[in-house]
Computed example of a mutant assay.
Amino acid sequence: MPDDQRGKVTTGTAVVRRWTWTGACVLVFAVLAHLLLRVLVVLSPVLIPLAVAVLLTALLWPLVAWLTRLRVPRALAAGLVLLVSLAALGAMLAFSVDALVGGAGDLGTTLRDAVARVRDWLVHGPLSLRETQVDALVEDLVGVVTGQTERIVGGATATATALGGFLAGLVLALFALFFFLADGERIWLGALRLVPARLRDEADAAGRGALHALTGFTRATLAVAVVDAAAIGTGLALLGVPMVVPLTSLVFLGAFVPYVGAFVAGSVAVLVALVSGGPVTALLVLALNIGVQELEGDVLQPFLLGRVVRLHPLVVVVAIGVGVVVAGLVGALFAVPVVLVARAVLESRAR
Rank of each mutant, 00 (worst) to 15 (best):
P2R: 11
G7L: 13
G7N: 12
G12D: 11
W21M: 14
V26G: 09
V31G: 08
H34E: 09
S44M: 13
L50R: 05
L56K: 00
T57Y: 09
L60V: 11
L70C: 09
A75I: 07
A77R: 07
A78N: 04
L80C: 08
V81I: 15
L82V: 10
G90S: 15
L93D: 03
G103P: 01
A104R: 13
D106S: 13
G108S: 10
R117L: 11
W121H: 14
L122F: 13
G125K: 08
S128W: 07
T132F: 03
D135R: 15
D135L: 15
V138T: 11
E139R: 13
D140C: 05
T146Y: 08
T146N: 13
Q148F: 11
A158H: 04
T159H: 09
A160C: 08
T161Q: 12
G164W: 04
F166K: 07
L172A: 08
L174C: 09
L174Y: 07
D183G: 01
D183N: 05
D183F: 02
W188P: 00
R200A: 01
A206M: 01
G209Y: 00
L211Y: 09
A213G: 12
T215H: 10
T215C: 07
T215M: 06
F217C: 06
T221A: 14
A225R: 01
A225T: 05
V226N: 04
G233V: 10
L236F: 01
L236E: 01
A237C: 04
L238E: 09
G240W: 02
P242H: 02
M243Y: 02
T248R: 07
S249N: 04
F252A: 08
A255T: 05
A255D: 05
V257D: 05
P258E: 04
A262G: 15
A262N: 08
F263P: 00
V270G: 08
T281K: 09
V285N: 05
N289A: 10
I290P: 07
G291V: 04
E294K: 13
L295H: 10
E296D: 11
G297F: 03
G297D: 13
D298W: 08
P302W: 10
L304R: 04
G306E: 08
V308G: 02
L314H: 03
L314R: 02
V316T: 12
V318Y: 12
A319Q: 02
I320R: 01
G321V: 01
G323N: 11
G323Y: 11
V324A: 15
V325I: 11
G331I: 03
L333T: 06
V336A: 05
A342W: 04
R343K: 09
A344E: 04
A344R: 02
E347C: 00
S348A: 10
S348C: 00
A350V: 07
R351I: 01
